[in-house]
Computed example of a mutant assay.
Amino acid sequence: MDNFDEATQKELQTFLEKEQSQARFNASIHNIASLCWDKCVTSTPSSRFARGEESCLTNCVGRFLDTSLHLVEVVSQQRQQMASSS
């Protein structure tokens, strides 16, 4: 990256950060889907879910998202408190 001017380096850095963020997000979604699938789908896969599997998947993903949002809020509040106390 030393061959690029400062503006181009910043643009590339921003692009890389966004791509890395997207990759982490995609990996999280994959992990959620895998964990919830393993937890909820207990029958042989077919064209329909067995009774209760669909609601289990919905609840599993919903709880994970709720927890993730809560953690983001807590970390954000902690950052704000640290910034205001310094």
Results as ranks from 00 to 15, higher is better:
S21A: 05
F25M: 07
C40G: 08
T42P: 03
D2L: 15
Q13Y: 00
V41Q: 02
Q22E: 00
E53I: 13
L35F: 15
F4L: 15
R63Y: 04
F49C: 14
K10E: 14
F64Y: 09
V75T: 11
G52C: 08
E11I: 10
T8H: 11
G52A: 14
L16F: 03
F15M: 07
W37C: 15
E54Q: 10
Q20F: 02
A23F: 01
S21T: 00
S34C: 11
Q13W: 06
R79D: 13
L57D: 03
N59F: 10
S55A: 13
Q9F: 12
Q78W: 03
Q22V: 07
L12D: 04
S21C: 04
Q80I: 05
C56R: 01
Q81P: 06
S55G: 05
L71G: 08
E19L: 05
L69D: 02
T44D: 08
E11Y: 06
V75A: 11
L71A: 12
L65E: 09
S34I: 10
K18H: 05
N59Y: 02
S85F: 01
G62T: 11
N3K: 14
N3T: 14
D5Y: 10
I32H: 03
V41T: 06
S46Y: 03
S55I: 15
R48S: 15
A33P: 04
R48L: 15
S76N: 03
V72Y: 07
L69Y: 09
F49D: 04
C60T: 00
E17W: 00
F25D: 03
A33W: 03
S43Q: 02
Q22S: 05
V61S: 14
L12N: 07
Q9Y: 08
A83M: 12
A23M: 05
D2Q: 14
T14A: 13
S46Q: 05
V74F: 00
G62H: 00
F25R: 04
I32Y: 08
Q20I: 01
R79A: 13
L65M: 15
Q80V: 12
T44Q: 07
N3D: 14
D2E: 11
D38L: 13
N3P: 14
T58N: 12
R51F: 13
I29V: 15
C40V: 04
V61M: 13
T44C: 07
V75S: 10
R79Q: 03
T67C: 11
S76G: 10
Q9W: 04
H30M: 11
C60F: 02
S43L: 11
A33H: 07
V72R: 07
A7F: 09
Q9I: 14
R51Q: 13
L65P: 11
T44Y: 01
L69K: 05
R48P: 09
A50Y: 00
W37K: 12
D2I: 14
Q13T: 09
N26V: 01
L12Y: 00
S46P: 08
D38V: 10
R63H: 14
R48M: 13
F25L: 10
Q81W: 01
L65D: 08
C40F: 02
